[in-house]
Computed example of a mutant assay.
Amino acid sequence: MQTSDSFNKSLRLSGANRSLPLVLHYLTQSNMSKRQVLLLLGAVLLCLSCFLFSSQRLSGTSAVGNLITQPTEPIPESVDSTVVPTLTWRPIPERLVVKIWQDTQQAKIMQPRRQDVLTVTPWLAPIVWDGTFDPVIIDEATKAQNIVIATTVFAVAKYIRYLQDFLETAEQHYMVGLAVNFYVFTDQPDAVVLPINMTMAAGRQLHVIKVPKYSRWQEISMRRMQFIQETIEKRIRYEADYVYCVDVDMKFHSRVGAEILGRLVAVLNPWLHKSERNNFSYERRNASTAYIPYGKGDFYYAGGFFGGAVGEVHKLVTACRANLEADKLVGIEAKWQEESHVNRYLVVNKPTKVLSPEYLWDEELGTGGSEIKFIRYATIRKNMKEVRENI
C-alpha cells in the first residue's frame, strides 16, 4: 500500500520536473543578457528549493493560503500514471506553446496582468482568466500550425435534448477558425442532426459513435472514461493533436479558443474555486482509489471539462478507467464518479494549464463575482430528477 510519505514525494517531484524544463526553455529563447539569465535562474531555483523544503515540513497551503496539518492516513494504491509504449501520437508543436507564453505574458509571475485573481499555480502553470492572454496573437500563432482539435461529448438518454444547443453555440464560440472534430457518443444515433439553418464551417466535422444506454446515470458517467480511451486508441490519435472532453448539457456564451490549448488542461470548479482545501469535495474514503486525504490537493477541478494533448489525455482516462474498475471490484463508488478520479489523478500529475471558472460556469451561481468578466461556457438549468431517470 502506498504511504503518505511516498505520496508526498511523488507530488513534489511531479511539480518540479514539469516546472524547471519549461523555465529553462523560456530562458534559452529570451533576449536577456547572460547575467540576467543567471540571476533569474538562481531566483527560480531558490524558490523551488524553498517550496520543496516547506512541503516536507507542512502539508502545504490551500488555494487561499491556509496552512493544513500533515495527515497520517495511508493512501490506497491507485493508478496515477500510465505508460503506453505501443501507441504513437501526432507531434505537438512545442514552439507554439513557447511563443504564446512569451508574447502574451500570460504566466509571468512578477507582472501578472490581473491583480484580483491567482494567475499562476505553485508549480508555475498559467491560470487563464479574461485579460491574461491576447486572443489576436494566440489565434495567429495557432492557425499557422494547422492543428486539429478533437472534442468528445456524451448525449445519452434524455441528454440528447441538449445536443443541438451545444452544437449551435459551439459553432459560434468554440475554437472558431480552427479545425475541430466533434465525437458525439449516444445511444440514439438517428436523433443526432444539426440545428436547422446551421452549417458547420470548413474543417469542422461531426462524428457519431453509438454507445449502450445504462439503467443508472452514474454508470453512464463512469463509462465515459472507457469510451474515450477506446476512441483515442482507435481513431482520435490518428485524427487530432488535442482532445477536450466536455459536458453536453451546456451552452457556449463567448469565446473559448486556442488560449485553452496545453499538454494537460483542467478547469476550476465554479462552486469551489474560492473554498479552502479541506472543504473540497474530494473522495475522503480511503477504501477508494480516488481517495485524497485532508490537507492534500491543490484545487478542485470540474469533471465536465478537461483535455490537452492526445497522449496526455489518454494517460488520464486510462488511469481513471483502471481506478474506477478497481473500485467497482470492491463494491465502492467514488463520491462524484469520474470527477473524483480526475481530481485524484491531477493531484499527482499536475495540469500544465488551468482554466478559470469562466470556462465552466453554473447558471445557478448567477453572474459570478467581480472576478468573472465573461461567462464562456455554462450549464443549462434543468430538473435533475426528470433528466436522470433513476434519481
Rank of each mutant, 00 (worst) to 15 (best):
D5A: 15
S6Y: 14
S6I: 07
L11P: 01
L11V: 08
L13H: 00
P21D: 07
L22N: 01
L22D: 00
V23G: 09
S33H: 00
R35F: 09
L52F: 05
S59M: 00
G60N: 01
T61S: 12
A63K: 04
A63P: 10
V64W: 07
V64K: 14
Q70H: 14
E73Y: 01
S78H: 14
V84C: 02
T86G: 13
T88E: 12
T88N: 15
R95Q: 12
V97I: 04
K99D: 14
K99N: 11
I100D: 02
K108T: 04
M110I: 13
Q115E: 14
V120F: 11
L124N: 10
A125R: 03
P126W: 09
P126C: 15
I127G: 02
I138G: 03
E140N: 11
T142H: 01
K143N: 07
I147C: 09
V148W: 03
I160D: 04
R161K: 06
Q164K: 05
E168P: 03
Y174S: 03
M175L: 11
M175W: 04
G177R: 05
G177A: 02
V184W: 02
T186I: 05
D187I: 02
Q188H: 12
D190H: 02
V192Y: 12
V193L: 04
T199M: 11
Q205E: 04
V208K: 02
P212A: 08
Y214N: 00
I220C: 11
R224A: 09
I228N: 07
E230I: 03
R235N: 00
Y242A: 03
Y244C: 06
V246R: 12
D249H: 07
H253A: 11
G257M: 05
L261Q: 07
V265P: 01
A266H: 09
V267N: 06
W271K: 07
L272F: 09
H273T: 13
S275T: 08
S281G: 03
Y282I: 09
E283P: 06
R284T: 09
N286K: 14
A287K: 04
T289S: 14
A290Q: 12
A290L: 01
G295K: 10
A302G: 14
A302M: 04
G303F: 15
F306I: 01
G311Y: 06
G311A: 11
L324Q: 08
E325C: 08
L329F: 11
W336M: 09
H341W: 02
V342P: 00
N343Y: 05
V347R: 02
P351Y: 06
V354T: 13
E358F: 10
E363F: 01
E363W: 07
T367D: 09
I372H: 08
F374D: 06
I375S: 12
I375D: 06
T379L: 03
K385Y: 11
